[in-house]
Amino acid sequence: MTSTLNNDVADTARRLAERPERIWAAFEHAASEGRAAFIPFMTAGYPTPERFPAVALQLLEHADLLEVGLPYSDPLGDGPTIQRASEEAIEHGTSTRATLQAVKALRARTDKPIVVMTYINPVYATGPKEFMRLCVDAGVDGLILPDLPPDEDLGIRFLAAEAGLALTFLIAPTSTPERVRVVTSACTGFVYAVSVTGVTGARDGGALSEVPALIALARAHTDLPVAVGFGVKDAATARIVAVDAGADGVVVGSAFINALKAGDDLGALAAKIVSGCRK
């Protein structure tokens, strides 16, 4: 009994050490090349379940980390672009298991960290423990749950720690110093700073004026890498966030979905954004 417990603890500790390390290494690698880490986002099963793997691999070629969206019917934090992509993905049968199978297939082709973004209801519906197990089995490194403030469910944090999954919570321009303290101290992989008061979607660079203050506030509370998302769509907006504001990572989502819709070359857009991330 005692030895099983010890084995469990040792196993957990090993996984805890290993998983966020892959995320941290990705940020460090980018920093060593004088860049902010490039973190593209794509909704699983989009544009179709058949085409998603190729799209994700194309993004992975340029990425330091990949963020995969597990589609949800009522994504409160998302603007029209990701809403529609999620609706279409669900219509095409992209389930929780299908999403994680797709991630597992990617995992066989890449060593780069992959984080899954979804809302809390699909996690609860699958059962948090089973959900985490499926994530670990698929080779997921971390989770982002935008409608779960860290103080809302300590159980999720415990289970994620036990499973060795990094948890990223969000801070926003409206966050008070106290909230930034609460949120950053709950993050185990990296901190996600939301660039604007609003939902996801491509915007003008002018909307990013609150990012420097937010990053400074985060740095006062944490040593974890701080990635900025919402509203970054091209080299110019990436530069504002990475160079002017000094973010450690740049998340770009809606712009890639829009590019897919327009039939534009994802690789070319990704390369441009990476150039904007260069400090």
Partner: peptide, 12 residues
């Protein structure tokens, strides 16, 4: 109950 909302709204 609870408050399952994006962090942006928590201060509000």
């Amino acid at each position: 109950g609870g408050r399952y909302v994006p962090e942006t709204l928590i201060p509000a």
